[in-house]
């Protein structure tokens, strides 16, 4: 009797394997930066090319880093959600405008609202490569010690924000800052 059940058991195992495999989206590449410090990047701001910001300045606060461009259609879809997120939560949101045009980007923020504390301007996409960027939009969450905690690839949805982003921000807010002495070591 058992002999005849073997093919069925093997088949069931295959089905389980396939169902598991189908749930993984191969287009989402896990970031090697998770739980690692945010790479050192220095970029001029969008509004003023003479002012620049270094990513090491981001220590001390939980920060959402959103990479966007005016030529990116899904960015438009996600933008209103970012405006909501910034308005309704006490969180620092940094924008990084990727391979774009300054005037277009400024106009976009004027028309659609500006959820960002600061927008950095990555004209040639070099900083994007340093962040392992491969599809705009992408969103990182970093903790108070500038350690990357989460990376979202593609446009954020309402569900992503309410189920993942906001709970994560709130959780990271209560984790203590490693004191200066330790970080210097």
């Amino acid at each position: 009797m058992l002999k005849y059940l073997i093919p069925l058991i093997v088949f069931s195992c295959l089905v389980i394997l396939f169902v598991f495999g189908l749930q993984n989206d191969p287009s989402i590449v896990p970031s090697p930066f998770i739980d690692k410090p945010l790479p050192q990047i220095s970029l001029p701001t969008l509004s003023d090319p003479s002012v620049s910001l270094d990513t090491s300045d981001l220590k001390g606060e939980v920060t959402v880093i959103n990479i966007w461009a005016t030529w990116c259609i899904p960015c438009r879809q996600e933008h209103a959600l970012l405006v909501d997120l910034a308005n309704n939560n006490d969180v620092k949101v940094i924008g990084m405008n990727y391979k774009d045009n300054r005037d277009n980007a400024m106009k976009w923020l004027e028309d659609l609202g500006d959820p960002y504390n600061i927008v950095l301007f990555d004209e040639d996409g070099k900083a994007g490569i340093d962040l392992g960027l491969y599809g705009v939009p992408e969103t990182f969450i970093i903790d108070k010690n500038a350690i990357v905690k989460h990376k979202h690839i593609g446009p954020l949805t309402e569900k992503d924000i309410s189920d993942t982003i906001i709970p994560m921000i709130n959780e990271l807010k209560i984790t203590p800052l490693i004191n200066e002495l330790n970080t210097e070591l």
């Binding site: 590449v29 896990p30 970031s31 090697p32 790479p39 490569i129 340093d130 962040l131 392992g132 491969y134």
Partner: peptide
Amino acid sequence: LVTRYGNF
């Protein structure tokens, strides 16, 4: 490239 994009 691996430090930025992983072994992928």
